[in-house]
Design a protein around this nucleic acid. Structure first.
Length: 572
DNA sequence: GCCGTTTTCGGCCCGACTGTTTTCAGTCG
């Protein structure tokens, strides 16, 4: 799938055009198109030119460029633009606080073309010889470079959310605030987060700001104004705080939740109706009369729209769907009836059955599936046929004693490098659920990995494919696999795909989840629990499902036990 | 470069903060 590649190229073209000082709207067109393609739940290569043009933000010209890249593997415009600047130059734009204008200036006046050269020039005071740059700007650029070197990459949602809640708590305790909410990509539950946005209402904004910049979490203050401040925490995460009046809370929340693309589209719609939306409310252009803004619902309502869940606000069709009354009724945490990927002491989990049952019942679950590793995973004390048969016997006994709760007999079986499973079919036949996954040989080619997964999907005993891309956020990239091919086969064979809720995995991701839905592949959301606390990761998995537009009917572990058993594919 | 119940040309979201200025450009979200 070339979607990501083309999105990256278009973004880079936008950067380069920006450096050249080109028409900002042309630049925006490339960025919009990049986002559109990135969020597309199917392979761009599979679309005809006519179909491409139908996509919002893509016209004759960009459709042609997409086709050009798909058929030749190159993009003329991109190559032309790259010739005008040295290869290392684009990294300069990643320095926070340094934009295209300044980048171009330092290149043209000082021939600076890399981060190292920029750092050197800033340290030696050469930058301040340029117009508009003095000591302070030099300092900020050095800070920016340091930030970049320390690793400014996006952080896993599961690591940022607890920090955000902690900061929220501190503000609430120490500052004179009334309403307080998380906004931004965190409220949209994006799987990785760049910064934390917090919104509060207060009648004493200056005091709130003072408290905020002096919180113990704060390492550096980037900006401090009367209604808006930005800081960096000791973990290197930027936190933005915004104060508004109560009457504007909804408008501000809507605005700061984004996404940017979603908001731009709303504002365009508004201006066509003679309205203006900003963070203070919705206003009639003619007389500046305020028509709403206390709640988010008001903002959407004046545009003739129902409230849209934050997870959907990516401008990937949600506004059009809302206009037609066709928004999906997305799955929620309360819909989840059980967890289908749980490890015990028998392999590398930490608990016995009773502890897990108790923890699951506390979460109002009706069942969990015991899915310990199979023998191939020696490091995790994987079960061989004999031990698995023993476990099956014990689970049967436990089930006969339980009321209103069931343990599913299962296994997380290793897909070997040749695509075969590492336990015999005789044993698998006795299970309720067989979760198959890859734990080794990630470096195989895309063809090999795809073949391996296809072979597992075609095995008649497999119920679910777990964490199918193997990514570990911030540690290991997803391995290359032909997602379309494996989803197609899964649909054909009746195999479900897992959204692994473990915060470092979140695999499938949101795009893949949406693709799975388009292909009609059933989904399970599982936590891969090794410790009882891991059950609480379910919310992260649900957030991926929500971002993928999944509804309750698309998710197998929203079903009651009997129906679930009926729907899970098993050995014939 | 896209797009059209105001338009096939002329629009294109909106505002806060900083630094270097003395009224504003650049950057960011």
């Amino acid at each position: 799938m070339k979607n990501q590649e083309i999105a990256r190229l278009f973004n880079e073209i936008a950067d380069l055009l920006e450096l050249k000082g080109e028409n900002p709207f042309r630049i925006r067109a490339y960025r919009r198109a990049a986002m559109q393609i990135e969020g597309l739940p199917k392979d761009v290569s599979s679309l005809s030119e006519e179909e491409l043009i139908k996509l919002p933000g893509i016209g004759q010209d960009l459709a042609g460029k997409i086709k050009e890249y798909i058929s030749t593997g190159r993009l003329g415009l991109h190559e032309e633009l790259r010739k005008e600047f040295p290869a290392t130059f684009l990294t300069l734009l990643q320095v926070p606080g340094l934009g295209p204008k300044t980048a171009k200036l330092v290149y043209e006046k000082l021939r600076i073309k890399s981060l190292d050269e920029l750092e050197e020039a800033a340290k030696s005071g050469k930058l301040r010889t340029l117009p508009g740059i003095r000591e302070k700007t030099e300092e900020n650029i050095l800070k920016g470079i340091e930030f970049l070197k320390r690793g400014s990459e996006r952080k896993p949602l599961g690591r940022v959310l607890p920090l955000a809640m902690d900061i929220l708590d501190s503000i609430q305790k120490k500052a004179p605030v009334k309403d307080i909410a998380i906004a931004g990509s965190l409220r949209r539950w994006k799987d990785t987060i760049k910064d934390i946005d917090i919104l509060v209402t207060s009648t004493r904004p200056e005091e709130v700001m003072k408290v905020f910049v002096h919180l113990p979490h704060v390492k550096d203050v980037l900006a401090k104004g009367t209604t808006k401040s930005s800081v960096v925490t000791s973990e290197g995460i930027q936190v933005d705080l915004r104060v508004v009046e109560e009457d504007s809370f909804g408008a501000a929340l809507q605005y700061f939740t984004g996404s940017k693309a979603h908001n731009i589209k709303l504002r365009e719609m508004a201006s066509k109706k003679g309205l203006k939306i900003n963070e203070y409310g919705v206003f009639r252009e003619s007389d500046n009369k305020k028509l709403g803004g206390k709640t988010e619902e008001e903002v959407y309502k004046v545009l003739g729209l129902p409230w849209i869940p934050p997870e959907l606000r990516e401008d990937t069709g949600e506004i059009e769907a809302a206009l037609e009354g066709g928004l999906p009724d997305i799955v929620s945490y309360e819909d989840i009836k059980g967890d289908l990927h749980v490890h015990t002491k028998w392999s590398d989990g930490s608990h016995d059955f009773d502890t897990l049952i108790k923890a699951a019942r506390q979460r109002n679950y009706l069942y969990i599936a015991i899915t310990d590793h199979s023998k191939g995973l020696g490091v995790a004390k994987g079960l061989d046929e004999e031990r698995l048969l023993e476990q099956i016997k014990i689970i049967d006994e436990i089930n006969s004693r339980l009321t209103g709760f069931k343990l599913l007999k299962g296994v997380e079986i290793d897909i070997r490098s040749d695509g075969k499973l590492d336990l015999s079919e005789d044993v698998l036949k006795r299970l309720d659920i067989v979760v198959a996954s890859i734990h080794s040989g990630f470096k195989q080619s895309k063809e090999q990995l795809t073949k391996r997964l296809l072979s597992a999907i075609r095995n008649p005993c497999v119920s679910v494919i777990a964490h199918p891309t193997g990514r570990l956020i911030g540690e290991r990239d997803a391995y290359q696999v032909d997602m379309e091919a494996i989803l197609k086969e899964a649909k054909k064979q009746g195999v479900a795909f897992e959204i692994n809720a473990y915060p470092m995995r979140l695999d499938l991701n949101d795009h893949h989840a949406k693709m799975a839905k388009e292909y009609g592949v059933p989904i399970v959301i599982s936590t891969d629990t090794h410790l009882t606390q891991h059950f609480d990761y379910m919310r992260y998995g649900v957030s991926i499902a929500r971002r993928g537009w999944l509804e309750r009917k698309d998710v197998l572990n929203c079903l009651e036990y009997e129906e679930l058993i009926r729907r899970l594919r098993r050995c014939p």
